[in-house]
């Protein structure tokens, strides 16, 4: 009885979390009036919506934009964060925890609070309606986040490993690049992936700092999708677009789940 209840609870949880996505898939495979019939699986599945999404607007371009901005931002953030997190995680200096807290608080900024200042900055740099401008503004949340997470990873690396390198004559730069960086591979992958997802999903800046269809990122494209009639959204296409951008993300998350546990350092310390 207890086990049955528990199984029911689990089933309810899975249903709750998975159903909306499932429903989006089901809806995306229907076209015309079939969309308005509630059924567990479309009687006549069709990929027409998927074709329409890419024909109706530069959706492929939006995906490319999102990819470019997100990966560029992640790359730069990680590069800046690796050395910074070493300084924050492993070097004792006055004001370190205050600095760390300030950096964390930046990632908690309400984005709207910097919107007008960023708008001015982006326009002054001539980056309005450009992917470069978007990338620059995204640093406000990806950079503090990567610094913060990498700092905790940095702290977990064994102290004796660093001391062995110091005795071997390694400078801080050598320690970071030749000892810690190779060991942080899994951590970098995990952190980068999380930052990538955040950048990929960002909406407010992308909505505000881009203007034309060909500069839009995926979330903006999906939010602003409109049909032939101004009053009714092309729901089938919206669902198709949603599925297209979500499937890779879910795949990434599944891979990432395994990545997080890494036994690389297990060989270095203790038995």
């Amino acid at each position: 009885m207890k086990r049955l209840l528990f199984a029911l609870l689990l089933a309810a949880i899975v249903f709750y979390t998975v159903f909306p996505f499932y429903w989006a898939i089901v809806s995306s495979l229907k076209s015309g009036s079939a969309l308005f019939i509630v059924e567990a699986w479309p009687a006549d599945p069709t990929l027409a919506n998927y074709a329409a999404v890419f024909r109706g607007q530069p959706f492929g371009r939006s995906i490319l934009n999102s990819l470019l901005v997100a990966s560029g931002v992640v790359g730069v953030s990680l590069a800046l964060a690796v050395t910074a997190s070493y300084a924050l995680g492993r070097v004792a200096f006055r004001g370190r925890s205050l600095l760390l807290l300030s950096i964390l608080s930046v990632s908690m900024f309400p984005q709207v609070a910097v919107l007008s200042g960023l708008f001015e900055l982006v326009r002054a740099l001539g980056l309005y309606n450009s992917l470069w401008g978007l990338g620059l503004t995204y640093m406000i949340f990806t950079l503090p986040f990567t610094v913060w997470v990498l700092t905790t990873f940095m702290r977990e690396l064994p102290r004796e490993l660093e001391e062995a390198a110091i005795v071997d004559g390694a400078t801080p730069w050598v320690i970071v690049t030749r000892i810690f960086l190779p060991l942080l591979g899994p951590a970098l992958a995990a952190t980068g992936l999380l930052a990538f997802i955040t950048a990929w999903n960002e909406f407010l800046f992308a909505l505000t700092f881009t203007l034309t269809d060909d500069r839009r990122t995926v979330p903006v494209a999906i939010a602003l999708m409109s049909g032939a009639s101004a009053f009714e959204l092309p729901w089938g296409q919206v669902m198709a677009a949603s599925v297209v951008v979500t499937v890779p993300l879910i795949a990434l998350v599944l891979v990432f789940q395994r990545r997080i546990v890494s036994g690389l350092t297990a060989g270095a310390v203790k038995g």
Partner: peptide, 20 residues
């Protein structure tokens, strides 16, 4: 992994999915 799915979905997308 199943429980994680909603987290991975962009807010805009989940808003549209639920909007529907």
């Amino acid at each position: 992994a199943a429980v994680l799915i909603p987290w991975a979905i962009p807010t805009v997308v989940s808003a549209q999915m639920w909007g529907w």
